[in-house]
């Protein structure tokens, strides 16, 4: 079991989908106990990165170590054991829609512990209380708004007290109030239980406001890495464009394509 400074170490990561190269030699170190943000525009592969860390996808080359273990060399039972220690909050929440909020949060507890039902009930209510949603335990997931569903999913992700949580775009689609609540919640969870948090996001302001360390990725590589103040004030043209939301810069608004005139006159050949 690792006691290194870094909980997650990614070295020389290469990954492609079909012909499309998504990661082309990425190195990322995620220190224990902090909040690390990985930012980049949509489609750069942030979700893919989390799935690689969780062992759901296999890299073409490179290694990913979590808590000292090479994720892609573990047997499937070892991988499952490691995953118990990793919580992941999916973009959509990914709650099971055929069971209630209570049963969703209780799911990992019932799967991985032998606790009596009375104990599970207490734990579930405490976890729901932590995300401010104890009142909805009886409801079904389809009765919740998107933001609430994600907070319930957060309660489920922390049910087993993992050592790290990976958040996939936690801020998209939140109204300003729940945004503030969520930011505080992520910070509080991180500090109170000594968690390590990984946030992937394209929401610059919110993410920069709580991250201790920020990686900016683009075109399959890490463009820059540093504290959030450093990154916000970066002189790197790419980082500046992304962080300030400028239309002009090294990243074109248009995807690669032949000149417009050619396409219009060519009848789409």
């Amino acid at each position: 079991m690792g006691t290194e400074k870094n909980l997650v170490t990614i070295k020389g990561l290469h990954y492609s989908r079909g012909d499309k190269v998504i990661f082309d030699g990425v190195d990322i170190e995620i220190p224990r106990g902090g909040i690390t943000a990985i930012m980049g525009p949509s489609g750069t592969g942030k979700t893919t990165l989390l799935k690689l860390i969780g062992g759901q996808l296999r890299p073409a080359a490179g290694t990913i170590h979590v808590d000292g273990e090479d994720v892609h060399r573990l047997s499937s039972s070892e991988l499952y054991k490691l995953r118990i220690k990793m919580g992941m909050l999916f973009q959509t929440g990914a709650l099971l829609t055929d069971i209630s909020v209570f049963d969703n949060v209780a799911y990992p507890l019932r799967e991985h512990t032998n606790l009596p039902e009375s104990m599970i009930r207490k734990l579930v209510l405490l976890k729901l209380e932590a995300v401010g949603l104890r009142g909805v335990w009886k409801q079904m997931p389809n009765q919740l708004s998107g933001g609430m569903a994600r907070r319930v999913a957060l309660a489920r992700a922390i049910a087993l007290d993992p050592m790290m949580i990976m958040y996939d775009e936690p801020f998209t689609g939140q109204d300003p109030i729940s945004m503030g609540v969520l930011i505080e919640l992520i910070r509080a969870l991180n500090d109170a239980s000594g968690l390590t948090s990984v946030i992937v996001s394209h929401d610059v302001e919110e993410t920069a406001s709580i991250a201790d360390l920020v990686y900016v990725i683009a075109n399959g590589r890490v463009v820059e890495c540093g504290g959030s103040k450093e990154i916000l004030g970066s002189s790197n043209a790419w980082t500046r464009q992304f962080m300030r939301g400028l239309a002009d810069g090294p990243v074109p608004f248009h995807q690669d394509a032949p000149p417009l005139v050619e396409d219009l006159l060519g009848g789409g050949q």
Binding site: R83, F90, T92, A94, E111
Partner: peptide, 14 residues
């Protein structure tokens, strides 16, 4: 499509 299967995998449930 709604990532429920992925979600189970990440909860260490097959």
């Amino acid at each position: 499509a709604t990532e429920q299967l992925s979600g189970l995998e990440m909860m260490a449930v097959d």
